[in-house]
Amino acid sequence: MHPAFSVIFFTVASGAGFGLFVLLYLADLFHLGGGLTADANALAGLLAICFVGGGLLSSTFHLANPKNAWRAFTRWRTSWLAREGVFAVAFFPFAVLYLVLAWLDVARDLRLVLGFFACLFAWATLFSTGMIYACLKTIRQWNTPLVPAAYMVLGHFSGAMILLVIALYSGAAFLPYEVLALALLISAAFIKAIYYFWVMRPYGSTINTATGFTRGKVRLLDTGHTHGTFLTREFGFQVRAGTRLLLKAGFFLFATGLPLTMLAQGQALQAQSAFAAMVCVLLGLVLERWLFFAEARHVVNLFHGAQRT
């Protein structure tokens, strides 16, 4: 699949935004490390809103006819893409009200109820984002429950790294935030490792089931077009096995390895190194998302001569 940069930026940014908001709320609910200051809380919330809003905005850049984008909210009964839009928009009023009440430090009970609903919508949006890909029977690398699971875990992981930086700069007792980030780092590493293992070997449809000639070898003689088509551009994108391996190593290095060495400082963690770790994680996630698209092989490639996907 062709990796569209707007979609990569959108999923990484909105994932981090939703993850940050959810963890911010949980930190508030459970007084994590004595709780963040009102200013730090507001700053983190604002950042979360910006990440989500910026991501959503960038997702419209890949539309060929954005004037009809408003219609994307209408088919939420069947389409995960529509559900994602509806949940993401529903998130904003609850999140903004929660953040305003938290900043003013009034009506704690109401604030927590509003925040809880914002969290529900954040989770629903993250799950929908994963399901947009996981529901496609045409791409075996995506058609697995590991995809929405990874979207949720990676979103929370990147959010936890941002929250840790804010906790450090605001002078809060940051150890619980560090442990939280560490736990999510380990979950993220495992879920992506299992995912890469799961999609490693080809299975499912072949050129034989695609053409219906299942009792002999089928070989493409001619695609019938003189130059590329929409299909070859959208689905024909391929990366070499060596590059794929390099990108996987890059993901594990940037998103898990390097941050792990920085988190290993424990109580001695400096704000600067936490910031560097956060940048590493976001960079690692961009690599992961790019590979997520580049590695996906649509069944239409079978008609263009691929023996398997």
Partner: peptide, 18 residues
Amino acid sequence: CMGCNYCSWACPYGAREL
């Protein structure tokens, strides 16, 4: 149509073109 390409991803037969 808003041209999001999502339907072409869901089609296994390559029947849709933007």
